[in-house]
Design a protein around this nucleic acid. Structure first.
Lengths: 217, 217
DNA sequence: CGGCAATCTTGTCAGTGTCAAGTTGGGATG
DNA sequence: CATCCCAACTTGACACTGACAAGATTGCCG
């Protein structure tokens, strides 16, 4: 969207399929239906997008730039993601899937919170996009199902705590836990806690925090 | 950035200074140095931007569109805000100023939290931009001072609670309170709490939440 | 009254997202 | 093995954008 930043005046397309030998269509899992010419353009663009978002945020993302990085034409991404919104929606859906996975392995509510924060730190690009509704396709099926999965996982962790422990109904406890973890993660990613947290391990800070706030009264 | 959405094919410039009488340079406060031709372009663009962001998010914001709404040429905004980042930075700075103001009137920590949530609901555009670091000019003076003001106001509210009440040091209590309020506000604006909160008053929900979590142990 | 500086306009350029139409090549079908 | 089909990709175009440079307008101040 902004042309001021000179980026890649180099005419060479970069690390593409070598001109000499064939582009080696082998994959990690032998079968799995290797898509086509590029090898796995969809995945390549996704990871390139994640890198770009991690570095400069979702706003700076450019489909044409991603295409250049992958060594394909400017319109190639459209075939896999329809448009910019589609790409970001795919990223968000993937993120909710990953989140649901890690939340599903949580032993209790506090552990779920710690996992939530860890997820945000390990997948900052996913996390940012997941909670930027203006960038996503609202009705998308993959997105809504993945989000529902993550919500369910969170709800399961919440329902595991007996309500008498907090003198608070389960629904409210869920909102509280989610708010605490989400706020901590968001402020952390935005470097708003760099001062207070300092060089301490953020997950450890959050653990003490959650322990103190949520201990039995 | 995206030309697909047809917006305003109407050739007429809209509600501009009427061609017949003069553009009536009167202001609310008689003096105050009415800037120039437009009356108060800077303010006009700011409020137009806030409207646009509230409606479609910061990503959809277009300087040229704001200029059209204000009835000025496409390059007019640049003179007041330098560039897109400058405009968003100005909005964020204004937001931190407003937030500092309302936090400064808080009676205690819980009240500060409620005010934080209320601010996010009453100024959603400001709030979104304030915590989107990728859209702001990092070193901007107005921004950093306004942010410091808001941080101080929050710190004051936190330090008002005696640490023995929570068995937790003040710094940690601050992080906890901020995380809780910020997470709640963020999830609320992203419509992630529409289900759980329902049609109840969000501020009231947050109040019970904070009361339960932060009551003396 | 003359200049001056802030305000705004006009014109231009590189870059972007999206669409439409063409090209390529691998796999299935006969 | 020949053929066709269709997904993957390319090429080209269009409307739009942010940013910059240079010129025009206008109120104010000496």
């Amino acid at each position: 969207m902004a042309p001021p930043e000179t980026k890649k005046p180099e005419p060479e397309p970069g690390p593409k399929p070598e001109p000499g030998p064939e582009p080696e269509p082998e994959k990690a899992h032998p079968k799995k239906a290797t898509p086509y010419h590029h090898g796995d353009l969809r995945r390549a663009i996704l990871t390139a997008a994640l890198d770009a978002i991690t570095a400069d945020g979702p706003a700076a993302l450019s489909l044409r730039d991603l295409a250049r990085r992958a060594g394909v034409s400017h319109a190639a991404p459209a075939h896999h993601f329809k448009d910019r919104t589609g790409l970001l929606t795919a990223i968000a859906a993937e993120g909710f899937g990953l989140l649901a996975g890690t939340l599903g392995e949580a032993t209790d509510l506090k552990d779920a919170g710690v996992r939530y924060v860890r997820f945000a730190r390990e997948h900052p690009a996913h996390f940012q996009v997941m909670f930027a509704p203006g960038l996503l396709r609202p009705g998308d099926l993959e997105l809504t199902t993945a989000r529902a999965l993550a919500t369910d996982a969170l709800r399961t962790s919440v329902s595991a705590v007996r309500s008498e422990d907090f003198g608070i109904d389960t629904r409210l406890a869920g909102i509280a836990a989610w708010s605490l973890a989400h706020g901590f993660a968001t402020l952390l990613l935005g470097h708003n806690l760099d001062g207070p947290v300092g060089d301490k391990d953020p997950e450890e800070v959050f653990r003490t925090l959650a322990t103190t706030l949520f201990r039995a009264h």
